[in-house]
Design a protein around this nucleic acid. Structure first.
Lengths: 342, 342
DNA sequence: CTGAAAGCGCTTACAG
DNA sequence: CTGAAAGCGCTTACAG
């Protein structure tokens, strides 16, 4: 591969001069500049980013730690990151951690070796081990779709509030016998707060027996089906279920379909996330939208701002969630209304 | 950040010695090795991959050119690549091209600057521009889920044959009035060959009017819905539709659901790809599976073999497709049988 | 076995 | 304005 020396020789100048035109230095005569440019063109020369990076201590690369890009949710968040990185002239090194601590720690080390300029840590809780490893990186870190007790800026949705609104919507539509398929109770991000929001809504509505109305899944389709069976076993008359992920919500719909339970006539369903498949189900899924792509965009923007010292970011940034009403919730007359009518 | 000099000073040896223990050279006394290791640990030193890469002319990084990771299909293929890269000690730089030639060419340049050790080019036809740019890279290139007239090894499924089998399956199930929602007729990979396979099956079965039975979509959900409307407008009695992607197949199901057409009782559907959502539809989608994850794995393995010169790969490698029978196809008695019975 | 030196491909004061 | 030189953080013949 051609180097700066080849160009210098061909243009009959020193490598310093070549370097100057490469870096748009004004102190080169028009004539030499032309000669150099010409030589570059003829040779198809491109500067070696490694050599440049070594000197500038900047690689123009950021690392993205993410559980699994083949997951609908992460795929969209990631796309937002990649797009702004690209637009701002950065590249991204992707690291699928699978939620595996060994893999995560290994990847953080690799990112350190490669001297990435910054890191986006996505969707997982920040353990103390992770925190220490991240600090050693000595570069800016931004949290996407998660948050922590440490001082990394983080971009996410207000899970408690979003969940509260979803449950509340169901209640407003007249449902009183409702349940929830939650995420993991060990998950401080998408697990605990969403349960808390659900709880708050039911409490305010004076609905009893809340604990038994909550079953835990793992956010995936299959667990949504199983959890529905469990829930309907406990409350055969249940009229609505809120799931902490769209995939689990699709599991509810599938379960209902298999048993001949009509959605939404007999069972209303609300999901969480608004991944692309939410609009492809039958009926299309009513869900709480997280601005996935924007979370990725904002996280990348925030990180690049910190790297280039344009702006200093701190603390927790909430992005707006939004209830998307499609076809899986039916309004039902409340018992009290019916009694009143008689 | 600490350098090899810091370690050398602390361990009271030369940087050559530090370098040797870093590279597991046998020519270092146990005692010095210990001292160096100790210093490395205390300092939390990690060698700079840029400096190493500069010398070795190897970055331990591969580039992946892919249209859009947020797409179900590519996300899974990509995951396969990332997993083997990781397992074999390589990192991956991801480049979402969006099928945009400017973006593609720009990315190939960037990969050249960054001196990646190899490139996987995914799912797009290789234009002459791309070919030239790829050649200039001077590193191995492997094609995943696509192929070309050039001499890059490529990993894909036999689209014509897979499509033929899908159509044939429908015919075997007694369908004679069937249609296809194809991809783009400008797409030499997932467009043209799949239409050809469909055609061949209908021809062999002596089914007439083939041209009118084919409508083109863009692989996405919405176009599947629209194409269904078009097809059913032309052939109101149509009993089965084969789609060149699962997403379009889901579009067929949605269209049917909205119009009260029962799947599979009144309309059978077969998809292509077997992305994760295929099993989440109601009824679950019968489809031709491409081994997505394995295509990614194999492409990465093939590339890394070439980079490390373990093996030389050439030509076209077909990975096996497979018809996955789920719930969207109904067997119907053929008219001829019914007549025979009477 | 070990260290000084050259070199990977660049950038950037420094002197002219 | 321009080139020689030093240096970014490493590896690896070379001499001892």
């Amino acid at each position: 591969m051609t180097t700066i020396h080849d160009v210098a020789k061909r243009a009959n100048v020193s490598i310093s001069t070549v370097s100057r035109v490469l870096n748009n230095s004004p102190l080169v005569t028009a004539e030499k500049r032309e000669r150099v440019l010409e030589a570059i063109r003829e040779l198809g020369y491109q500067p070696n980013a490694l050599a440049r990076g070594l000197i500038h201590r900047r690689t123009q690369t950021i690392g993205v730690l993410i559980p699994d890009v083949s997951n609908f949710f992460f795929a969209e968040v990631f796309r937002g990151m990649e797009d702004v990185a690209h637009a701002r002239g950065w590249n991204v090194m992707i690291c699928n951690t699978d939620g595996d601590p060994r893999r995560m720690l290994k990847y953080i080390e690799v990112l350190r070796e490669k001297r990435v300029d910054g890191v986006i840590f996505t969707s997982e809780p920040v353990s103390e081990d992770y925190y220490r490893a991240l600090l050693k990186l000595e570069v800016p870190v931004v949290l996407a779709a998660t948050t922590s007790g440490y001082d990394f800026p983080s971009i996410k949705v207000n899970d408690e509030q979003a969940s509260f609104e979803a449950a509340n919507y169901l209640i407003e539509q007249g449902h009183r016998n409702l349940g929830m398929i939650a995420g993991s109770s060990h998950d401080p991000i998408a697990g605990v707060p969403r349960v808390a929001g659900f709880r708050r809504a039911l409490q305010e509505a004076g609905i009893a027996d809340i604990d038994r109305r909550i079953v835990h899944g793992d956010y995936r389709f299959e667990s949504g089906k199983q959890a529905t069976e469990e829930l309907l076993g406990r409350f055969p008359e249940m009229t609505a279920i809120f799931a902490a992920s769209d995939e689990m919500a699709l599991g509810i719909i599938s379960y209902a379909y298999e048993r001949g339970i009509r959605v939404p006539e007999e069972l209303s369903v609300v999901g969480f996330d608004n991944v692309k498949i939410a609009q492809m189900s039958n009926p299309p899924l009513t869900t709480v939208a997280q601005p996935l792509y924007q979370i990725g965009e904002k996280a990348a923007d925030c990180l690049l701002d910190m790297i280039t010292k344009t702006v200093e970011h701190k603390g927790l940034h909430y992005l707006k969630h939004q209830l998307i009403v499609r076809g899986t919730v039916k309004e039902i007359k409340q018992l009290t209304d019916e009694r009143t009518l008689k």
